[in-house]
Design a binder for these strands. Structure first.
Lengths: 137, 137
DNA sequence: CTAAACACTCCAGCGACTATAGATATGTGG
DNA sequence: CCACATATCTATAGTCGCTGGAGTGTTTAG
């Protein structure tokens, strides 16, 4: 039996976040002590670790809810789980691509080096004038 | 004289977002028509384009507010503008690095290809068991 | 038995919008 | 000049995924 604090320490998920996950239906409402405090079993520790890991990988609460539901049916085919992860991978790749563009844009902008005045600062001019950009974004 | 709709079309910033920027102090409250509708000048069009561009580059509202304030003092040195952009570049690079790690983690997880059951699905097992990860995250 | 540590609920706030409802204004064709 | 369509107004609430605080009650170690 773990208290919510134990669970928090063991998974690295903050206490209010655990209660939030309960509210969001990611974990079932656990048993309570005589004094109405949450008391968890090992099962719930594992479930929360799963959630934590999936969140660290950037999956949305909705995607995690789906994956958790799937994991309760070990006999079913796993195509759906694969689809969720694959889609997520695609969105991560997209974000990387977008950030790379921003990176190169910012690199060019930053080349100003702060050794003159705002009036002829490349940072400010580049932001004011979109046509100075290399790629459209 | 532009209406808020004109401004929106010309900059690609949605109407409620323009009003939101006004509330947040990024653009001054403009003149109003007889019937209390916002009427903008070219100055404000340019300012909004600046904001839009900076947002596209991922700068926060606070950073943009600072840059706008700086751009009103063309005689001052531009070290501060440079600092804001450089810091932002660093945070973009950090995000790229984090996403790359996620990408490779997800690539490994997704290798499952959905041709079996949940019970032995790598996606689900990998999420449940952090020790299967290559790098800590 | 007491004091410290812990947990409870409820509610507000973050950032950057986005959406809705219900009322008013503006611009255009007949 | 008027009807009508479109545009705009304000105010408020919702989005996502938490995070923090206030005020109260519970558990546990010494």
């Amino acid at each position: 039996m773990y208290s919510i604090g134990d669970l928090s320490r063991r998974t690295g998920v903050k206490i209010p976040t655990i209660r939030y996950y309960e509210q969001m239906g990611l974990i079932d409402a656990p048993e309570r002590s005589e004094g109405n405090q949450r008391r968890y079993e090992k099962r719930e520790l594992e479930r929360l670790a799963f959630i934590r890991h999936a969140r660290d990988l950037g999956l949305s609460i909705d995607a995690i809810r789906d994956l958790l539901a799937l994991s309760e049916h070990p006999e079913r085919p796993c195509g759906e789980a694969d689809r969720i992860a694959t889609e997520h991978l695609a969105s991560v790749r997209e974000r990387i691509a977008r950030l790379r563009k921003l990176e190169s844009e910012l690199e060019r902008i930053v080349a100003c080096h702060g050794d003159h005045t705002i009036g002829d600062c490349y940072v400010i001019r580049a932001l004011a004038d979109h046509s100075m950009c290399e790629s459209e974004h």
